[in-house]
Simulated scan of single mutants.
Amino acid sequence: MTPGSIHPHGTPGGHSHRHAQGHHHGPAVTRESERRIRFVLLLTFGYALVQAAGGWWSGSLALIADSGHMLSDAAALLLALVAYRVARRPADRIRTYGFHRVRVLAALANGAALLLLVAWIAWEAIQRLQEPTAVMALPMLGVAAVGTLVNLAAAWILWSGDRADGNLRGAFLHVMGDLLGSVGAIAAAVGILLTGWSVLDPILSVLVALLVVRSAWRLVSDSIRVLIQAVPQGLDVDEAMRGLAGLPQVADAGHFHAWTLTDESSVATVHVSPAEGVDPLSLPPLVADWLHERYSIDHVTVQVDPPGRWGAAGQRGEP
């Protein structure tokens, strides 16, 4: 216990907690939304396999690349589904924050695998640009047309669901990206049919690969950011410290730390000292509410200490 620290209820203690929406660290679970995402996941993954097989048969690298794009989106849908499932599992005495980091580890593995796929597509595209390979444009066109219908159906399923659900909104955006890939494959197939330029296929495959690498890199970078406990996106530590120290009720603020727990939940700890004449018991809810309103941090631990405890190092939020 830190000398001079005060629990918000007036008893000796080290800190106080603020939970913006109760003591819960995971995303809200909506069974209807989960059902929609599960159906779209099966639809997307199933067609990605069909598209890969069709690309292999027709010789279309663009279809194989687009199947990789759909696999990346299927991975995102799977992570959204895992988020729903994980939200149901209660924390235990060993994993007091629950099992949310399982989702982060899955995202990191998926992102790394997709980056390897992009590297293979880029290598194969370079080879085909140097030595063009014949592409069966009609089968390519048929597979791409079916993909357009599949993506339209998936988009409608997600769009007609709960539009306030962040997982559904994110899944819808992924499906729209798949739809663009399918339309591009149709355009390439039509172009090959009309001109005989098989080089259109590797060119499109590179464009689709860029979509894949964007999604994959985001998965990898966001996962690493969470695992190394970096501050949440959009949070400037120095600015937060200045804001806390500038509150009229606060004399000093230091030892500020913040990190991401899940996509929808962030955590912070901070030490503060009361200004002269301010009730120390008023600081924990005041500071927690300020951090929530300014940075959407919904789990805040506030420790109240005597003034002048840390000096300049504390002002920078250093340990």
Rank of each mutant, 00 (worst) to 15 (best):
Y84W: 00
R85D: 04
R85G: 03
V86I: 03
A87C: 01
R88V: 01
R88L: 04
R89V: 00
R89Q: 04
P90K: 05
P90M: 05
P90T: 06
P90H: 04
A91Q: 03
A91W: 02
D92W: 05
R93P: 06
R93G: 07
R93K: 08
R93M: 06
R93Y: 15
I94H: 10
I94L: 14
R95C: 07
R95S: 07
R95I: 05
T96N: 13
T96W: 08
Y97M: 07
G98I: 03
G98T: 03
F99R: 11
F99C: 11
H100D: 09
H100G: 13
H100N: 08
H100E: 11
R101N: 11
V102D: 11
V102R: 11
V102Y: 08
R103C: 06
V104I: 12
V104W: 08
V104T: 12
V104R: 10
L105C: 13
L105T: 07
L105S: 11
A107R: 15
A107V: 12
A107L: 10
A107C: 10
L108T: 10
L108P: 05
L108E: 09
L108N: 06
A109G: 12
N110Q: 13
G111S: 05
G111Q: 03
G111D: 04
G111Y: 03
A112N: 14
A112S: 11
A113G: 06
A113H: 04
